[in-house]
């Protein structure tokens, strides 16, 4: 099993941390993980992306070559990735023009995170959605990572994770991507 995930947007959207949480969850399941990042000089704003490769085998080349799941949070990154074949593409429907096609899943992730009380939980909502929609990583592993990492703030993050799961369950077309 080898899965490749891209979390793309701009600086400050928690993409690197999102990738780390996903990677740590996969490690709990005994997987090999490589997480890389690409970013510009701005800490907030500007292009930023985090790549995660999860595999049973040794991961040799460190970059994503054929993405299975892509999260885009800016129009720029959607334009970069919208033609990726065979990838599930999530996007923030408030920030990016609506896309048509079964591979696209647009939700107002940022707004949902703010409503939960912290815009920083946006990546966790997305991870909940990815976990529920695909078999990349289990919800249990993500819960464990969030609980260990966030201590007092874990409850909010677990709520955000559940929010993502609920979004995915509302889809009738739930399918495991294998």
């Amino acid at each position: 099993m080898r899965k490749e995930v891209i979390l793309a947007g701009s600086g400050g959207q928690g993409l690197v941390l999102g990738g780390v949480i996903l990677g740590e969850a996969a490690m709990l399941e005994g997987k090999n993980v490589v997480q890389t990042q690409s970013y510009g000089i701005a800490t907030r704003g500007g292009f930023s992306q985090s790549e995660v490769i999860i595999s049973d085998e040794e991961i040799i080349f460190q970059q994503v070559e054929k993405a299975d799941v892509i999260l885009t949070l800016t129009q720029e990154t959607m334009d970069m990735y919208k033609d990726t074949p065979d990838a599930v593409i999530l996007y923030d429907s408030d920030l990016i023009e609506a896309q048509s096609g079964p591979q696209f899943h647009g939700y107002p992730f940022t707004k949902m995170a703010i409503e939960l009380g912290n815009a920083g939980t946006l990546n966790v909502i997305a991870l909940g959605f990815i976990s529920a929609l695909t078999n990349i990583v289990t919800l249990d592993s993500l819960r464990t990572v969030l609980t260990n990492r966030f201590g007092k703030k874990a409850a909010l993050n677990l709520k955000a994770l559940q929010k993502g799961v609920d979004l995915a369950s509302s889809l009738n077309q739930k399918e495991a991507i294998s």
Binding site: V20, G23, N32, V33, V34, Q35, T36, Q37, I59, Q62
Partner: peptide, 9 residues
């Protein structure tokens, strides 16, 4: 920069 910023098990 690649190995410096890369995360692995």
């Amino acid at each position: 920069e690649i190995v410096g910023h890369m995360r692995e098990n």
